[in-house]
Write a protein that binds this DNA or RNA. Structure first.
Length: 281
DNA sequence: AAGTTTTACAACCGCAGTCCA
DNA sequence: ATGGACTGCGGTTGTAAAACT
């Protein structure tokens, strides 16, 4: 567990990579593979430490990296996976082909976290925020509460079931099953309500910083349970004894049928303030 | 138009886990 | 069993660009 001495070596360059350096690194890896990152810079003739080379390659130069803005689907997936996995960026990235953990981490910290925060959702727990920092989330005393509770119960039930699915944590590369689940949820009314939040998000929600000084920025959000968050809570890797399809079907059914039935008469305030989602770029 | 503030993202830092002699 | 070498990962920082005053 000794620590590898790294970039503290004299004469090694730091900071942004130049196109020339990129070129050298790409050419070298094309020809020889990266091999030992530690020895790579010397062999390739780069005045960088191996760590820096590895980072540059894995986060930027790798040919299979998908550059450009995140699609809505990708953003959804990131939020949903974050609800399950927390800040395990590498694990989340493994579910989004072509995206790096660094990229996802940045996306989360610069966009998604704020968005959830503005919606009164604790970005860490994916639960309605109880702090005074975020938009106040008080249990509404309206009939809609009942439906929110029902949805929350359904969600928790699904989570509990999922917790029995060890297969979740043995995700195949790009766990389509889970993505499908998420997409199903997204395509349900819950997701719909999330999308509807779009307008509110654009106009009312600026940033946590601005919220801190100006609570009115998020004032139009009444806040409610997230539904989208398959929270960290309740996930234990226990034995598996049920088919994973069960979960899929139940969740889909829960969101498509039960939610549409049980939430059918929910007020729009519940639906439309449940989620916010918009492209900000 | 200029100065200031905020945002976005690339890159760095350092801890922790794994491998291997 | 031990400890050094190395890699992977998550948190943090630096800075250019964009937005705002």
């Amino acid at each position: 567990m000794g620590r590898a001495p790294c970039c503290d070596k004299k004469g090694l360059k730091k900071g942004p990579w130049t196109p020339e350096e990129d070129e050298i690194l790409i050419e070298y890896i094309k020809k020889h593979g990266h091999g030992s990152w530690r020895s790579l810079p010397k062999l390739a003739g780069l005045l960088r430490c191996g760590k820096s080379c590895r980072l540059r390659w894995t986060n930027y130069l790798r040919p299979d990296i998908k550059r450009g803005p995140f699609s809505l689907e990708e953003e959804k997936l990131v939020i949903q996976l974050h609800g399950i996995l927390g800040n395990r960026w590498a694990a989340i990235a493994s579910q989004l082909p072509g995206r790096t953990d660094n990229e996802i981490k940045n996306l989360w910290n610069t966009h998604l976290k704020k968005r959830l925060f503005c919606m009164g959702i604790d970005p860490q727990t994916h639960e309605p925020s109880s702090t005074t920092n975020g938009p106040a989330v008080k249990p509404p005393a309206s009939p809609s509460t009942r439906h929110m509770t029902q949805w929350e119960n359904a969600r928790l039930e699904a989570e509990a079931r999922l917790s029995r699915e060890s297969s979740l944590f043995n995700l195949p590369p790009l766990g389509r099953t889970d993505s499908d689940i998420f997409l199903s949820i997204w395509n349900s009314e819950v997701g719909e309500s999330f999308r509807k939040f779009n307008k509110v998000d654009k106009t009312a929600c600026q940033s946590p910083v601005s919220q801190a000084s100006s609570s009115t920025k998020c004032g139009s959000i009444s806040g409610t349970t997230t539904g989208i968050g398959l929270t960290n809570a309740g996930y234990s890797v226990t034995g598996s004894n049920q088919s994973s399809n069960l979960y899929t079907e139940d969740v889909v059914a829960g969101s498509d049928s039960s939610s549409s039935i049980e939430l059918e008469d929910s007020s729009d305030t519940v639906i439309t303030t449940s989620f916010g989602f918009s492209r900000q770029q």
